[in-house]
Design a protein around this nucleic acid. Sequence first.
DNA 1: ACCTGAACACCGTTCAAGT
DNA 2: ACCTGAACACCGTTCAAGT
Lengths: 179, 179
Amino acid sequence: MAERSDAARNRALIIEAARELITEPGELKLSAVAKRAGLGQGTLYRHFATREELVRALYDREIDELVALADRLLGEHSPDEALRRWFTHLAAYARVKFGVIAAVEASVWHDIGAQTPGKLGEALTALLTAGRADGVLRDDVDSRDVILLSWFLAHVEEEEWAERTPRLLAVLLDGLTTR
Amino acid sequence: MAERSDAARNRALIIEAARELITEPGELKLSAVAKRAGLGQGTLYRHFATREELVRALYDREIDELVALADRLLGEHSPDEALRRWFTHLAAYARVKFGVIAAVEASVWHDIGAQTPGKLGEALTALLTAGRADGVLRDDVDSRDVILLSWFLAHVEEEEWAERTPRLLAVLLDGLTTR
DNA sequence: ACCTGAACACCGTTCAAGT
DNA sequence: ACCTGAACACCGTTCAAGT
């Protein structure tokens, strides 16, 4: 069953409008999203039955990019260097995307973590497996452990980011490394 | 200016009602809090002008207890043992309190972290200073670093808590320790 | 001074009518 | 099939009247 072209276009308009509005202070009002997209309230509701569905659509794309990056880094670098670089990119994504998005909806904080068994979890598992095979990583941590430990990224403030994040990532990587 | 006794009593009733309701699934409805407390809507609003003020009142007490604990542990144990034990208690508090409370209000996630320069930050600084003096801790991390790294605690699920948290705390402490 | 609770305002959700 | 937007419902906030 192919999607009608106007439906597909409207879906894109909604996501675009939400992407713009979510960076603004205050809540993300669904009525404002519909208005900015130039659509009726009911149309928004047809595409995204809850606010959570809409917010999830916003960050799904970012997760796909992180997954693709893990594959590429593993092909180009040693396991520990790949993990180190991937963390740095994760940090950059978290700063811009997850922080802003999740500030809108408390339940999303929960769901990003719960989603780990998906593609993101597999990508991270690949990184960890390579590192363990090399003997540089603890052998008792899994991908969910690492996702959990990375939550701090969502709470670092803009103005302290540059000074604090490299050190925090170093502490975390140190803790994951075998002595 | 002393508080009128009925006002003090009502304030306590509100906090008590909110404490009970916040553990239930779904949002914390202010109207439900007023109803359970047996008070009018306006009375709730007089005491707590925003939902955030109410939620903050709920976890302020918990923070006080953590602060007192840090002092006591430093008097009774070696610096690294004190830090280790304090982390374990922090984990227990985070599990029961912060996770439930912050799930209700996204902005609270933000504010718990921003509050670090307060009493909690001082208590943690005392722990870190003692550890550094002993030469067991990295000398470039501060109390806010540790608070940020502890955020994972709020995202561990009930059923995985026992298996995962000890390992995650070990990774974190390992990262904070000098090699 | 503080409390009450009905009235108001805001915004998410629904649905009858239109294309 | 999908879209529109007015109507509805829910809940946070306010305020005139009461104690």
